[in-house]
């Protein structure tokens, strides 16, 4: 291998150790690398919490630990997509505020074949107490009253 290829392999091994649960590469201080891996996961969890505040709020002070456990072997896709994946994985157990956050997101975005989100122009979905309608880039909850 050329020095450049060696460098590429060494960098990939380090990234794998830091964010994908890989072994600490030879010669590195495993305690320091583990501390850096925890710091990176904390940063990632914090970014997801900013993008999905209601979702994170469900877990309060335990958000970091809960997200870290789920995300440990899932490479980061960016805060908005990580939050979407986490929310979808827990769809059946989400309390109302987090469920509404997921609903609002999915009214505006759909998953395309390549895994990237695509913006929806029009969508309707049932929501607690009404129908969520998305048109012209805006989402609106239309309340439905049950007939007496």
């Amino acid at each position: 291998m050329t020095p450049r290829e060696d460098l590429a392999a060494a960098q990939a091994a380090l990234v794998a150790a830091l964010v994908a649960g890989g072994p600490t590469p030879a010669g590195f201080d495993p305690i320091r690398v583990a501390a850096a891996a925890r710091a990176l996961m904390g940063k990632r969890a914090g970014e997801v919490a900013r993008a999905w505040p209601s979702l994170a709020a469900v877990h309060g002070a335990r958000w970091m630990a809960v997200f870290a456990e789920w995300a440990r072997d899932r490479p980061a896709r960016g805060a908005r997509l990580d939050g979407w994946d986490f929310a979808r994985a827990h769809r059946d157990s989400l309390p109302p505020a987090a469920a509404l956050e997921l609903l609002m997101w999915e009214a505006a975005w759909r998953q395309s074949g390549d895994g990237a989100p695509r913006r929806r122009h029009f969508s309707t979905s049932t929501a607690p107490g009404g129908v969520l309608v998305r048109m012209f880039g805006r989402s609106r909850l239309i309340p439905l009253r049950s007939r007496p």
Binding site: P3, R4, D6, L7, A8, A10, Q11, A12, L14, V15, A16, L18, V19, A20, A39, L40, K43, R44, P75, A76
Partner: peptide, 23 residues
């Protein structure tokens, strides 16, 4: 910040070597 197609999500140090200096 990335290697092998994986994003680290943060700034990572480079080795202080001739190869890294060249890159």
């Amino acid at each position: 910040v990335r290697a092998g197609g994986v994003e680290a999500g943060h700034l990572l140090p480079v080795p202080r070597t001739r190869a890294a200096l060249a890159a």
